[in-house]
Design a protein around this nucleic acid. Sequence first.
DNA 1: TCTGGGGTCCTAGGACCC
DNA 2: TCTGGGGTCCTAGGACCC
Length: 447
Amino acid sequence: MRREPSILHVDLDAMFAAVEQRDKVSLRGRPVIVGGVAGRGVVATASYEARAFGARSAMPTAEARRRCPPGTTFLAPRFGAYRRTSEVFMALLAEVSPVVEQVSIDEAYLDLAAGDHDLSAAGVTAVARRLKAAVAEATGGITGSVGAASSKLLAKIGSDLRKPDGLLVVAAGEERTVLHPLPVSRLPGVGPTTEERLRRAQVHTVGQLAAVPLPDLIEWFGQAHGAGLYRLARADDDRAVVTEREAKSVSAEETFDVDVADRGRLTRELDLLAARVGGRLRTAGISGRTVTVKIRHHDFTTITRSLTRDQPTDDPRLLAELARRLLADVDTSAGIRLLGVGMTTLTDFAQDDLFSSSSPAAPDVDAVVAEAAEVAPEPVEPVSAQWRPGQDVRHDDHGPGWVWGSGLGRVTVRFEGPATPPGPVRTFAVDDAKLHPAEPPDWTVPA
DNA sequence: TCTGGGGTCCTAGGACCC
DNA sequence: TCTGGGGTCCTAGGACCC
């Protein structure tokens, strides 16, 4: 924790609704809901006028319609407009400090210690006031709330406590005075589940949380979350303001208006989702190794199925093929409400390079596949095959597949057959671009 | 008309390796 | 042929955030 309140948290107030009210005079001063307006939509942002009637973010739009009076305006989001406003906002922040951490489209941390600023409480207050005025001016009247403190935790809580259009500077040394009276739900990381578990232990405020022994918290919440709560309750937070973070996953999903059971339709949706993910991977210049399919059933139970390749890809067609295979193992006959495709284990080089001319000569993959199918004790159909050069293949290699010989690389073949459970991977070692069969394959897949 | 879409981080078990 | 511990990777699920 620092000795000065040099971390700022800035958050635009009900940004989506505020942009709509800015752009349409007739909406000003009136309840506005922005979010999904179709059957299964939820509220993204409720204007403060709508919040007065109980509308909240993440609430089903249907529920918000019930709560809000006639005359409430329900709008689908205009992300382009929000993005433009966000860019103006972020540009202003960059003028205040070179170290800006954008958290979302409407929220950021600033490290004032990285700029040339008076870091006294009075000095930081002056900076924050000027910033708020500049934001309102540059965005056409969108207001923001600012918290300043010696840590991210208190800066964030400070802006929360004073919104909308507020400012709170927490002087160094005052952190726990501000923090301890608050309900535990104000802490980042305390959602409904954690709040309920704490309530059962008669822990309601952050001050009460600070009195719980560390071993208890770890027992209740696990090592990471438990230790995290222990520290946050003490205002012990030294997280740095970081400007860049690498993406860890890219995904796309869709909730259908009505549950979908039709396999043809699902396959087409899957292809579209894969195309979106692949397109975004390519735009970002990254590839991934792990493909995940997400399915939400009619009762909201959600499952994922994933597979990890040895080589990364950003190819939408391959992505779609792998996703189809994963979906094939899921029973969707009762209809599903959501379908999603994701890519993780991301790397920032293109997979094509791995197969370039510097690699050993590729074997005749078709011949390898044919030979493997030949020795199978039952009719099988190769689904895919991949040549992977430079793999260190050894005789004692074992695992879900098997390997023959040793050599320059492997050909991995995926088969499907009547007696073979779908998807087993068979690996063939290749020496001098030739298959080296050593012993008959065992087609039994371990239970 | 119950519950979006994009993410992050964590846990736990099993396989595998040394 | 009996026993083992640590580390990594993979898979699946869950809590949480904006």
